[in-house]
Design a protein around this nucleic acid. Structure first.
Lengths: 343, 343
DNA sequence: CGTTTCACCGTAAGCGGTTACATCACCGTA
DNA sequence: TACGGTGATGTAACCGCTTACGGTGAAACG
């Protein structure tokens, strides 16, 4: 590992000049600059990031807080991979890396978990992280709020937070749900039910809100018994439909707040001997892989998956360089009409 | 941010003693040790990792090399999320973090891509990474070999590599394929085809090998026209089945080397008016989410998804602390019998 | 021709830890 | 009493980079 000092000696300049060549190139004479760069390249010089971070008190890393909530075992983020792809590539463009912070359960006390946001915040200080990206794992609104208040730049995904240097990015959940429900209404359905996510989950509540608005717009009544609580898991979709079908006036259409639940609903309908979409129309939310392969293929509200990562990266970079708080980002959704809703 | 020096002053000791309290506790008097620890806790002391890394020339981070191969656009790792969960939690247990290294396409030249393993290796030196975990994104055997030869500790997933401090973890692909194929044979099928992954892909080739062995064991002939090349994508499964059905003696069963292709095969069979499993039995590989929800539910070979991450973490930690090369890890697979193969 | 300006560069003091080595008090032993 | 051994701690160099500050010489100015 060649160091700046070695380059300096070979070039007959001081280490300060070498440093300047990389950080404020315009302040050094073109000739010496090129000499330094050439030698640096020859030696395969790689700046020592630890030294740099020690000196500047900032690294080129962003922390990723992603903890599988113990209250929701088995829960999987619907599109983590696309999100990471977007996040990583957008951060790369700024020369930043993503540090997946260790979670709790460590004997050596390096731990941190959503139950203890302080641990994560400590980590960001230890490593001079530029900021934190918070991935929702179900219902961590309170914990996320603590991050936001801590003063470290952070952007939460799918959870609305507020703080001196905090913002969030989320889909237009209300709009998406509204569009989905309206589509069902336009198809002639008058008894449209919905299966919600877990209580307290913000995207879920926005979706319920969109559902209500669509019904109102279509002049349809909102029936409490047509709003049944799920938890985003597939099973809850099945259970919900069983409950709905037992009603005196069962719905002819269902808007599920997640594709997983929509699939569960599909299974329940099939088990009950109903044809989808003829006897029961179903619309989901997310547009995950599964949506296009179930039979009938799921009509669903697609989210801009890589867009989440890109928007998060932009927001965090803006906060790091700008310093102030950024506006929340609401990503547009798109209704993908397939077969499960009829047409 | 309290520093070691502050603690030292408050305790009336030197910084060296403070450092020793955390690194070699046994060498410092119990009384002063407790005093230091108490003050450290009161001040919320967090050791500066940059300084530590600068001094010790090693950080507590492992690099993650995960690049979506440009030759395989749209490719998704079948179970990245579970893998990451396993990896992260196992690394946490050793106090290590996962650094997702930035990929190429950066104006500032920090770049690195699979086409240029050197870039990644440089990154590991810059950041004093303990090692690298290489995630296969299709067919990077050559690039991975370069990593393995570079001398940095690294463990590859699903690609056999060899080097002074390199090893790999993979599933028992041959065994899994063999079991799947044997199961089909035991069901009475005599014309069993297979859809392979992309040429050069090691898991794919091992699966073909297992397929061949199973046929041999069952006393069935291996027909070249029954081995059709796919690329792990769904579409290739569809195409393959179309080709197979056009044969003079079409197969009555198909072993697909990935669930995605199995789903594609399912679609093709359905489109051709065939019933699955009656007219065509299908078995997949991976046991991804989709497998259990398609109709009929897919019989498939399940991989130990979190086990990958855990094994990788163990191997890399062993190489870091031990120094030498570790034995490759072959994870057992498990045949999950559902509906697509008949019974 | 003295003085100011400016581009360029070197000096040196950090940043916050780790650790080889020195120091010192205190003990047991010959 | 002199001496070696031992446990506990301090001293100071070092890791490699950044940057405030000062110095130099040449050009520009009055």
């Amino acid at each position: 590992m060649a160091t700046g000092r070695e380059i300096a000696q070979l070039c007959g300049v001081s280490v300060a000049t070498v440093s300047r060549v990389f950080n404020q190139p315009e302040t050094v004479n073109e000739e010496t600059r090129e000499r330094v760069l050439r030698v640096a390249k020859e030696l395969g010089y790689q700046p020592n990031e630890s030294a740099r971070a020690l000196s500047t008190k900032q690294s080129t890393m962003i922390g990723l807080v992603w903890d599988t909530d113990h209250r929701r075992p088995g829960w999987r983020h619907p599109y983590l991979q696309d999100l990471l792809i977007g996040l990583k590539s957008a951060l790369s463009a700024h020369g930043y890396h993503l540090l997946m912070l260790a979670t709790s359960g460590d004997a050596r006390e390096v731990g941190a978990s959503l139950a203890d946001p302080v641990g994560y915040v400590n980590m960001t200080r230890r490593h001079h992280l530029g900021g934190l990206v918070l991935i929702d794992s179900g219902s961590d609104a309170e914990a996320f709020e603590a991050f936001a208040q801590s003063g470290v730049p952070c952007v939460a995904l799918d959870v609305a937070v507020d703080g001196p240097k905090a913002t969030y990015v989320t889909s237009d959940n209300e709009g998406g749900a509204r569009q989905a429900t309206s589509h069902l209404a336009a198809l002639g359905h008058t008894r449209i039910a919905t299966i919600t996510g877990p209580p307290g989950n913000q995207p879920s509540e926005a979706r319920v809100s969109g559902y209500r608005k669509a019904l109102a717009e279509a002049g349809l009544p909102v029936r409490d018994e047509h709003i049944v609580a799920g938890d985003f898991y597939r099973t809850s979709g099945t259970l919900a439909v069983q409950r709905l079908l037992a009603l005196d006036e069962p719905p002819t259409a269902v808007f599920a707040a997640s594709d997983e639940m929509a699939v569960g609903a599909l299974l329940a309908a099939r088990a009950a001997g109903l044809r989808v979409p003829d006897d029961l129309a179903i619309v989901g939310f997310d547009d995950i892989e599964i949506a296009s392969v179930v039979d009938p293929a799921l009509t669903t509200v697609a989210q801009d998956k890589p867009g989440f990562g890109v928007a998060a990266a932009k927001a965090i970079m803006a906060m790091i360089t700008g310093g102030g708080r950024e506006d929340p980002v609401i990503l547009p959704t798109r209704l993908v009409v397939r077969d499960s809703c009829g047409s």
